[in-house]
């Protein structure tokens, strides 16, 4: 279980990264935390010609709180966010979701943008980004810098709007809004596993904005009415996700969790188990 050969370039600036991406496009892979890429390299599921290491690009290792969002750079590790005391105030949903991601040892190296780039349908960070209505900033050497809404960025299983020559230079999480209660809940086979169903919630007096991960081929968020209409709306949401059977859970189980856990999460805050 050893990777195929590739050239390795340790970039020292964003410019260099963009140049390399421009040169190699589809044949290049960005190595940030490596928590997904390295495993797929080792298994030869991916065989890039060039691996561009951005771990030492200082300008990509920045977290900024500005203009109503928290911008997280491409080289920022998940642990840097868990260590950020202000996060619970800035982006409480993300603060609640982070402990559910993998394990302490993988959060130590795994990056926030790497998780977004990989676009695993069960991943927590893309789910938060979509639920909060965040965005992804893409840059390339020759093209225009683009800011893509998260809901458009994720296009399906491991598939995103990123073009081969583009770098996800940062992702932007909208800051907490007054009067909104943020909740996160996940059911997995084990602690730290891929979610069978993950739910992210922004609850306001007039409605619930519920994000679902692990069911559709991408994270999906939907605004739902509260009160008597909620069960029917949850049912519609559950069926709309195209849940599928796999070795760990049935489609019916996943739909049922969307309905019942969704209702629990919206109506009974105590059911949001912290980790």
């Amino acid at each position: 279980m050893k990777a195929a050969s590739f050239d390795y370039v340790r970039a020292s600036s964003k410019k260099e990264v963009l140049q390399l991406l421009h040169e190699h496009g589809e044949d290049a892979r960005i190595l940030a935390g490596g928590q997904s890429l390295m495993a797929t390299l080792n298994m030869r599921l991916t065989q890039p010609k060039v691996v561009i290491d951005i771990n030492r690009v200082e300008e990509l290792n920045r977290i900024r709180n500005e203009s109503g969002y928290l911008a997280v750079g491409a080289a920022v590790r998940q642990v840097q966010l868990t260590d950020r005391a202000e996060l619970a105030r800035e982006v409480p949903l993300l603060a609640k979701a982070l402990p559910w991601i993998g394990h302490f040892q993988t959060r130590n190296r795994g990056t926030v943008c790497g998780s977004v780039a990989h676009a695993d349908p069960s991943a927590e960070i893309p789910l938060c980004l979509v639920t909060l209505g965040g965005s992804v900033v893409l840059e390339s050497l020759k093209g225009k810098r683009r800011e893509v809404p998260a809901a458009e960025f994720f296009q399906g299983l491991l598939t995103t709007d990123r073009q081969p020559k583009e770098l996800i230079s940062e992702v932007r999480f909208p800051l907490a809004q007054d009067g909104t209660d943020y909740r996160f809940q996940e059911i997995a086979m084990r602690h730290g596993d891929f979610a069978l169903v993950a739910l992210a919630l922004c609850l306001r007096a007039d409605g619930a904005h519920l994000g679902v991960g692990g069911v559709a081929d991408r994270p999906v968020a939907q605004t739902l009415p509260l009160g008597d209409e909620l069960p029917a709306a949850l049912n519609t949401l559950a069926w709309s996700l195209g849940a599928q059977d796999d070795v760990h859970a049935s489609a019916a189980y996943r739909r049922q969790l969307v309905r019942e856990l969704g209702q629990r999460l919206i109506e009974e805050p105590s059911h949001a188990r912290p980790r």
Partner: peptide
């Protein structure tokens, strides 16, 4: 496991616990 799950290869990289199967030696 060489895919970052079992944890047996964990070492400290600049003091931080990391899977050494999910890092390249050149890194």
């Amino acid at each position: 496991c060489e895919h970052g799950v079992c944890g047996a290869c964990t070492v400290l990289v600049d003091g931080v616990a990391s899977r050494s199967c999910l890092m390249l030696a050149v890194q």
